[in-house]
Simulated scan of single mutants.
Amino acid sequence: MPLVMCIAAARPNFMKIKPVMDALEARGADVALVHTGQHYDAGMNDVFFRDLGIRPPDHHLGTGSGSHAEQTGRVMAAFEPLVGREKPDAVVVVGDVNSTLACALVGAKAGVVVAHVEAGLRSRNWGMPEEINRVVADRVSDLLFAASPDAVDNLRTEGYHEDQIHLAGNVMIDTLLTNLDRALASDVLARHGLTPGEYGLVTLHRPSNVDDPATLDAILGALAQISASLPLIMPVHPRTAARLDGRSPAGLTLTPPAGYLDFIALQAGARMVLTDSGGIQEETTALGVPCLTLREETERPITITEGTNILVGLDPTRIVETAARVMTDPPAKRCPALWDGKAGDRIADALLAYLGSGTRLRPTQLRPGARV
């Protein structure tokens, strides 16, 4: 059976890689888990391995933090000799963090089959580092596993071969459905004195929202107004904590980062969620919880057209008015097709079939007329 290296790097990756690993191992593949070390503190790393039952990594690169160039370069420098020694048949990367880009590039240059899970997402905002990471990772990958039809359409428009593109469904939802009963058994609401349906959940972490003091203060001001009619709790991302510098924003109950099970429980019990996270847009859609996305664009538009997400932007007045409307008239509960807990199985079947076919479709040239 083939050796498949599955890459985990940061908090969002852990929920995405677990279903793929499980499905590959159930089919007899030799799976090596590689942790790049992009997230390394206990609150953003250890608790997720424990909550999700992820086995210890087979290889830990220990690359740590740094600028985009430093971090990407360190991951490449550490991953390249590992690929040279182990000679995997395939490298599976997920999402859009710096390690995704780095490992995809190393795998492609080493002639290894590269599979990108969560391919085809596009915000079309080139100011987002994640947009650059996901576009380049797609470009060097052999297999592109999309979570939704809009992502498939993006890949087709950009000229990728039909043989590369697979509509697999959403691995994040695999993990959510697998662990939902355990999450709902959490006592996290009681610990924080919360009543289901009578609080709002907030997350903020994107540099575009938290690094500029004026933008952050405007968002916090809007949240303070909302909190007058709905108590708000915010698990604080380390980046946001550094920008707050000890401040306690009005109307917000701040907590340390939550583990996976506790955070799903907080989402499931919330009246609404206000966030700038991509993955939370998907999880709230699966849970049927209204989500207000504090960004000007989203790479997950299906959560708007077939989910519970509303893109509200950053205007404080619009944020407050939309929150008030949602409290009385929440969006309908809808969930996209194939967000059914079986995405990992589809990915494993397609990847192993490709490796067993003996053929190779390295996308060295896009279709004529492709737009890039």
Rank of each mutant, 00 (worst) to 15 (best):
R271M: 00
L194H: 06
L252K: 10
R134K: 10
I264L: 13
A102P: 02
L61A: 08
G53W: 08
H60E: 14
D46L: 09
H39A: 08
G288D: 07
D150M: 12
Y160S: 02
E70L: 10
A137Y: 02
K342P: 00
A343C: 13
A23D: 09
R50A: 15
I347F: 08
L143N: 08
L201R: 04
P231R: 05
V152E: 04
L223H: 07
Y354A: 05
H59C: 04
T240D: 08
M272S: 02
A8E: 11
G358T: 04
Q267K: 11
T63R: 04
V273D: 03
F79S: 06
T284L: 03
G193A: 04
G278H: 04
R191I: 10
L261R: 13
V114L: 11
P249T: 12
W126N: 07
I302E: 15
K333M: 00
M15W: 00
I264F: 00
L311V: 11
P213Q: 11
G193D: 04
A77Q: 14
L194S: 08
P256F: 03
E162F: 01
R182H: 09
L292C: 04
A115D: 12
D211Y: 00
V171H: 03
D262W: 02
D58M: 05
R139P: 02
E118K: 03
L33D: 11
V136E: 07
N45M: 13
A10T: 14
H237N: 07
A10I: 02
R134H: 08
V236L: 13
